[in-house]
């Protein structure tokens, strides 16, 4: 059985909010209806977003690390938001595991948002219907789009490729490999919701420099004025060093 999901690499996310704007732009323009945008240019702007990026500071100064944390529906394998819905508007698709809201059935009772421990469902203040990440279900199977664009809008927008989209039940998918090889984990595992989205932890980045890298002519660490001026004919590692 397929379970589509996102794997989010906290090690490379720079908190640029590109996924947030790209998500909003795609999903507010779709056929399912717009997402509210109240006071966008005034005090207290607010509105509906399927995806938000938060920032946390870990450790105490000066030994701190900044963690940018993108947060959207995790498409839980055992979603507590689904059985509580009185109308059946909230459901999990059998064929690909995406958790969706049938907007036309939703009565806006908010019960499902109470039943989601992650706070990723948002009642649209204008439509008065519950909304949440759809994994861009209207993109990923969309034959009107070129093949390479059939991915969630956030994944396409991410400049650091921090978002991997794929089937986490297929052990050979890029997503599953990333989870396996880079310590992918789930949020709040204590509630047994089995989120399908995984997060990749931050890793120590170490710089290694070999001695010959320090003395060679194209060493970028050399002060400009002290640069040796080799002959134009001397072979060099790149064009810039040959002047």
């Amino acid at each position: 059985m397929t379970q589509l999901a996102l794997v989010i690499d906290l090690n490379v996310c720079v908190g640029c909010q590109a996924c947030v704007t790209s998500c909003k732009s795609w999903n507010t323009s779709g056929t399912a209806g717009s997402l509210a945008d109240l006071n966008p240019y005034d005090e207290d702007p607010t509105g509906t977003f399927f995806n938000r990026v938060q920032t946390f500071e870990v450790g105490s100064y000066p030994n701190t690390e900044t963690v940018h944390f993108p947060k959207s529906c995790l498409h839980c394998e055992d979603p507590p938001c689904v059985p509580v819905c009185p109308t059946g508007a909230s459901y999990k698709r059998a064929e690909d595991g995406i958790v969706l809201v049938d907007y036309d059935k939703c009565i806006g009772c908010k019960y499902c948002s109470w039943a989601c421990p992650y706070g990723v469902r948002e009642l649209d203040p204008e439509r008065k219907e519950m909304t949440k990440c759809t994994l861009c279900v209207d993109r990923i199977y969309n034959e009107a789009l070129p093949e390479r664009d059939r991915k969630p809008a956030c994944v396409l927008a991410c400049p650091t490729s921090a978002r991997i989209f794929g089937d986490v039940h297929d052990p050979d998918s890029v997503a599953s490999k990333a989870i396996r090889e880079r310590g992918g984990y789930q949020l709040m595992p204590e509630w047994g919701t089995e989120p399908s989205n995984h997060y990749l932890p931050r890793r120590k980045t170490e710089m290694t420099i070999r001695p010959d890298e320090i003395v060679r002519t194209d060493n970028p660490l050399k002060v400009d004025g002290l640069k040796p001026m080799p002959d134009a004919s001397t072979p060099a590692l790149d064009d810039a060093a040959s002047w």
Partner: peptide
């Protein structure tokens, strides 16, 4: 710690992903 999966005793939130509040 379990909410974001970072196991460090000191975590401070710097941004909530919104300005004027949200449904949440």
């Amino acid at each position: 710690q379990t909410a974001i999966g970072v196991h460090h005793p000191r975590i401070a939130q710097r941004s909530q992903g919104l300005m004027g509040g949200s449904f949440n």
